[in-house]
């Protein structure tokens, strides 16, 4: 069984040779290769090479063409600050206080910002692994993109003070996401992961998610499916238990759950959805391989009866993680 078939089996709660394991290795691939993170997030060929090396080194079931949370906002017009060995940060938001929404530029993934580099990374990765390993692209979710267009605090105040304008911005974000995600599928991604940390109930109330975010996630997921995504994978970190039950309605087939959500409640909330999670990201930095192995075994046992599980971390494995800890995670499904 190859990685893609294994993941397919997990998706449909069918038997497989072993549980799929996907370490959320993004910037860590640069660290492992001794490449500056700043270069990694700007050069699609470098990103792809580092991801391939990391795949060869760890032997897990997916590679990620994922740069950081500022790709879309940069392509719309925000100014970023790039620093050595760090993810870039937004220096000037494109949608500052009194900006005119009508002026916002809908980016073209073929030429704006780093979008073409991300597409390049996808092409290289897909060409290299074919249908053996899952090639994951990445788009932000609508809430997180709005927050990256204007700042989180400002976005939340806008939602209260001028809901109509906020909704227009959400719709604009949705168009950006769809265009970028479809381009990623055309470039060869099996699916773009939808990364929407700002939709977490620690940031927005559940009703806010249900009324404003869910309908847009639905549109995004169904468009991706039509464009050939093998399924939709939603990633919201933090204490997501109250919003998990909405995922199937959105069209989500793989649901990430963080370390702050216990496996039993995730299973209860999503009895028919494949779950991925949920080792503590920081444990990959400060714990031992034995600890990771134990935690992974505990999780595997939780899901042994049910299936529909991909062993993973609850969120990104920090770039500075100890490689032996990632190895311990990957080995857990093989022992």
């Amino acid at each position: 069984m190859n990685s893609l078939k294994r993941i397919h089996a997990a998706l449909h709660f069918q038997p497989h040779d072993r549980v799929p394991v996907i370490a959320q290795v993004f910037g860590h691939a640069a660290m492992l290769a001794g490449v500056d993170l700043k270069t990694y997030v700007q050069d699609g060929a470098v990103l792809a090479a580092c991801q391939r090396d990391a795949l060869a080194y760890y032997d897990y079931d997916a590679v990620f063409a994922l740069m950081d949370t500022s790709v879309e906002t940069e392509a719309v017009g925000s100014v970023l600050d790039y620093r050595t060995n760090a993810y870039p940060t937004v220096q000037a938001y494109v949608f500052a206080k009194h900006d005119d929404l009508a002026q916002l530029h809908l980016p073209d993934p073929q030429c704006d910002g780093r979008m073409p580099e991300l597409l390049k990374a996808i092409r290289i990765l897909r060409h290299a692994v074919g249908n053996e390993v899952l090639v994951v692209g990445c788009v932000l979710g609508p809430m997180t993109l709005v927050c990256q267009l204007m700042g989180l605090q400002e976005a939340l105040y806008l939602a209260i003070d001028a809901p109509d304008q906020f909704i227009q911005l959400l719709d604009f974000a949705t168009r950006v996401i769809i265009r970028f995600g479809v381009a990623q599928l055309e470039a060869g991604a099996h699916l773009p992961i939808i990364f929407d940390p700002a939709s977490c109930p620690e940031v927005i109330p559940v009703a806010f998610f249900r009324e404003l975010i869910l309908p847009r996630l639905k549109t995004i997921c169904s468009t991706f499916t039509q464009a050939g995504a093998i399924c939709n994978w939603l990633h919201i970190a933090g204490r997501t238990t109250p919003i998990l039950p909405f995922y199937p309605e959105a069209g989500v087939a793989i649901a990430n759950f963080d370390f702050s959500v216990d496996p039993a409640s995730a299973m209860q909330a999503l009895p028919q959805t494949c779950l991925d999670g949920n080792l503590k990201p920081f444990a990959f930095v400060d714990a031992s391989p034995a600890f990771i192995a134990d935690e992974a075994q505990r999780l595997l046992q939780c899901f042994a009866q049910r299936g529909g599980f991909i062993l993973s971390s609850g969120c990104e494995i920090p770039p500075e993680a100890r490689p032996e800890n990632i190895t311990a995670l990957v080995q857990a499904v093989r022992s």
Binding site: L156, Y157, E202, I204, F208
Partner: peptide, 12 residues
């Protein structure tokens, strides 16, 4: 039970 928006609005 930490309602972020509630606190943000009160804070403002």
């Amino acid at each position: 039970q930490f309602n972020l928006l509630e606190i943000m609005l009160a804070g403002r």
